[in-house]
């Protein structure tokens, strides 16, 4: 995380300063608008320098976010945002790297990268806007979709148990695990700011309703509530809490103390020409 120098002549940046002038393609009422607002509020809260911040994404409705921010952005291929972000952060440790995406992008096609990003624990923040549906392709079940949800692609439902992202993140070694709700942009901004500040791999699962293909998710606002317990640094305790989690406890669940993975870069001990000595006869 790289924050603004506290120069007296520079006015603090506002959330609006972190927004681009490009109009989102999202449907009216989409939860992702609130996440974009929360993200820019978090950036303002931390006074991140826009040029030293990069938002990286894959493919899907929520993956459009990089273009809507005024920071550097990278909009790559479906499912591979964490890989691209890992390359960026490891080679440029001075950058603050935030990865955004959806449940299909992160948990299905990108599932393997999710596991390994948690395990690798590179210092970056992964925000998943989970709406339990593929929205951009107009309504197919994702790994977090309920088994009986009916769709054209899965008539009568998939019959498959939904995937619990926080359980996976915790088990795979993420250093910071939290859930937020798009209906509360200020609370979400606080959680995102904490995630960015936390060293290592921070995972924030955000319930972000898809009002077009999952209109029933409008009711999430009546079930989402602050978690009754404070964050823990004990992985076993966090795991026990998740066993009784109904998916609507909002807040930071776990913050561990595992040091981030950051190999040293930029310090040469030998010249390139010197390397040829091992080949010489």
């Amino acid at each position: 995380m790289t924050t603004c120098p506290s120069a007296v002549d520079e006015a603090p940046l506002t959330a609006g300063d972190y927004k681009s002038d490009y109009k989102p393609i999202w449907c009216p009422g989409c939860g992702d608008y609130s996440v974009l607002l929360a993200l820019t509020k978090a950036f303002a809260q931390l006074q991140l320098r826009p040029e030293l911040t990069s938002v990286v994404s894959g493919i899907g409705c929520s993956s459009r976010i990089p273009a809507y921010t005024s920071t550097y952005g990278f909009h790559g291929v479906h499912g591979r945002s964490l890989a691209a972000a890992t390359g960026l952060k490891i080679s440029r440790p001075d950058m603050t790297v935030v990865v955004t995406g959806g449940d299909g992008d992160g948990y299905s096609i990108g599932g393997n990268h999710f596991l390994h990003a948690c395990r690798r624990n590179v210092d970056m923040t992964y925000i998943v806007m989970d709406n339990h549906v593929y929205g951009m392709t107009k309504g197919q079940p994702s790994p977090t979709t309920e088994p009986d949800w009916n769709s054209k692609l899965s008539p009568g439902g998939t019959g498959l148990r939904a995937f619990h992202p926080m359980v996976i993140a915790l088990a795979a070694g993420a250093n910071f695990v939290a859930r937020a709700f798009a209906g509360d942009p200020n609370g979400t901004a606080d959680i995102i700011a904490q995630a960015i500040k936390a060293p290592g791999f921070s995972f924030v699962e955000i319930l972000s309703p898809c009002v077009t293909f999952r209109p029933e998710q409008r009711d999430w606002k009546s079930v989402a509530r602050p978690s009754p317990v404070p964050p823990t640094n004990d992985g076993a305790r966090a795991a026990r809490r998740l066993m009784t989690d109904d998916g609507f406890n909002i807040g930071v669940l776990y913050q561990g103390e595992r040091p981030p993975y950051q190999p040293p870069v930029g310090k040469a001990r030998r010249t390139v020409a010197d390397l040829e000595r091992e080949f010489a006869l």
């Binding site: 990069s54 890992t86 390359g87 390994h116 040293p264 930029g266 001990r269």
Partner: peptide, 28 residues
């Protein structure tokens, strides 16, 4: 490492190529 660079082992080739692209986007 000796010349100030870094190699990361990726989880698969999908990751390795995308990591390399991410690093290159960062200027390396």
């Amino acid at each position: 490492v000796e010349v100030g660079g870094v190699l990361v082992q990726a989880e698969d080739e999908l990751a390795s190529i995308n990591m390399a692209i991410g690093a290159s986007y960062g200027g390396t």
